[in-house]
């Protein structure tokens, strides 16, 4: 089975010019943890994930943890005195910026003919959601998420 058989071919998407504010509304509306970002030709630009959003609300050095040497990673932030107003203020500075600025271009993607087990592995590794991109045109043709795989599993066992 190839992943195009289990993917959602019409997922909610963000245009690169959409604002972070709109992205948050869509994440809340669909209860998704990530949304693919595309341009006006449906070419895939990257993934806007809630982890990125939370990273933007943390001090910048924390959001860089993935690329920092282990020794530079902060042990905890329990000593910070920031409250919800501070987070809102930080989020307020981002609300009107285009999502293209924050789209994760390095997030893993699948091809339409990627085998099922590759999709399961990537969903397992990302704990979430993997865009399916046509390699030649770079166009987004769907997404595979935990929910799509679980739905197929349930379908088959009924």
């Amino acid at each position: 089975m190839a992943c195009q058989e289990i993917m959602d071919a019409d997922p909610p998407v963000l245009l690169g010019t959409d604002t972070v504010g709109k992205a948050v509304s869509m994440l809340l509306e669909h209860r998704y943890l990530a949304l693919p970002v595309i341009d006006s030709n449906r070419r895939y630009l990257g993934l806007f994930a809630k982890s990125r959003l939370f990273g933007l609300m943390l001090p910048s050095i924390v959001a860089l943890e993935d690329v920092l040497p282990k020794i530079a990673q902060l042990t905890d932030l329990a000593y910070l005195s920031d409250d919800m107003d501070d987070l809102r203020a930080r989020f307020g500075t981002l609300r009107d910026r285009p999502v293209a600025e924050f789209a994760d271009r390095a997030a893993p993607t699948l091809k339409p003919d990627s085998p099922l087990m590759e999709a399961v592995l990537l969903v397992y590794r990302t704990r979430n959601f993997v865009p399916v991109v046509e390699p030649a045109s770079k166009r987004l043709i769907g997404v595979v998420s935990t929910w799509h795989i679980l739905a197929k599993l349930e379908e088959g066992s009924r």
């Binding site: 001090p59 910048s60 050095i61 020794i71 530079a72 902060l74």
Partner: peptide
């Protein structure tokens, strides 16, 4: 190098605030 890797992250947080 170890020293700056330990001190710089918390310095950035202090400057940020």
């Amino acid at each position: 190098v170890t020293t700056v890797l330990l001190v710089v992250p918390v310095t950035l947080i202090i400057c940020d605030h």
